[in-house]
Design a protein around this nucleic acid. Structure first.
Lengths: 141, 141
DNA sequence: TGATGAAGTTAGCACAGGTTAACATTCTGT
DNA sequence: ACAGAATGTTAACCTGTGCTAACTTCATCA
């Protein structure tokens, strides 16, 4: 096995971390908006177990990066870019979760691990997982 | 499927991040020590693509947390605790990497994804991956 | 032995993500 | 309408992880 050039990967891992939370927030905003019509800061604070201050700043980052819009004291809404990301994250999450179930991991563990793993799965690996789920007869999907 | 309490998981994800880098460093220190007899700060800086300043602080954290020892201007050495963690991380990394290969992911992608995924794999999932590799005839190990 | 370059350290900065405390706004119910 | 609760905002702080600049120590070799 060829020794991989680890440097770039670690840089990648680092920058990945920067987007993980954004993905989680975008996903959560999409869910709340679907479920309740709107998404409030307090919803996100509860969801992530952080204070509303943290949510406030995170939402600010999402707005800055073009994933969401908001108004003072108003709800948070996803932009087109945000909705796309949310949909993509959800698909990916579903695949990873189903895949773990197919692999024989129990549901509770699969849920936890999927949360951590999903952000680090490349398109290729995701495709391989998807194929595996399909060949397993679609269990867990 | 029971709806999981997402809050705790996000807290877990957060604290996970704090230990990921420590794991990577400990692994790297173990490798350099094996390969070269000692591990110097500059080795780690090169490995991770960061400055020696960053390495210095990270090593300080490892020392603080009982994973390593060092002396001013001297090499970094792992404690028993550090060696254990390194061994565990390496085993886990090998399993995840082999697993991805078995899944049909190409070697380069598997290497990248394994780096990201390995820190988020529970004991259960790791066991499932191991079993899968075994059943696949041990390809990629 | 002492100059030079490599390696390590320290100080000070930035950004992300978390906190509490204090204040502002909005909503709700009497 | 207004009091009080719920929610949102701002200021100020901590830690982790990066950085540059400036300095110290070490190791090597003429």
């Amino acid at each position: 096995m060829k020794k991989r050039s680890t440097t770039n990967q670690h840089v990648r891992t680092r920058t990945d971390h920067a987007t993980e939370l954004a993905e989680d927030y975008v996903e959560a905003i999409a869910e709340f908006t679907e479920k309740s019509g709107t998404c409030r800061g307090v919803d996100l604070a509860t969801q992530f177990g952080v204070t509303n201050v943290t949510v406030n700043r995170m939402v600010g980052r999402l707005v800055r990066d073009g994933y969401a819009t908001t108004t003072p004291y108003g709800p948070v809404e996803l932009t087109e870019k945000g909705r796309k990301l949310a949909a993509q994250c959800r698909r990916r999450h579903e695949i990873v979760f189903s895949f773990l179930l197919c692999l024989g991991v129990d549901s509770a563990t699969a849920a936890i691990d999927a949360e951590g793993i999903e952000h680090h799965v490349s398109t290729d690996t995701l495709a391989a997982m998807k194929a595996f789920v399909k060949n397993s007869g679609g269990r867990g999907g």
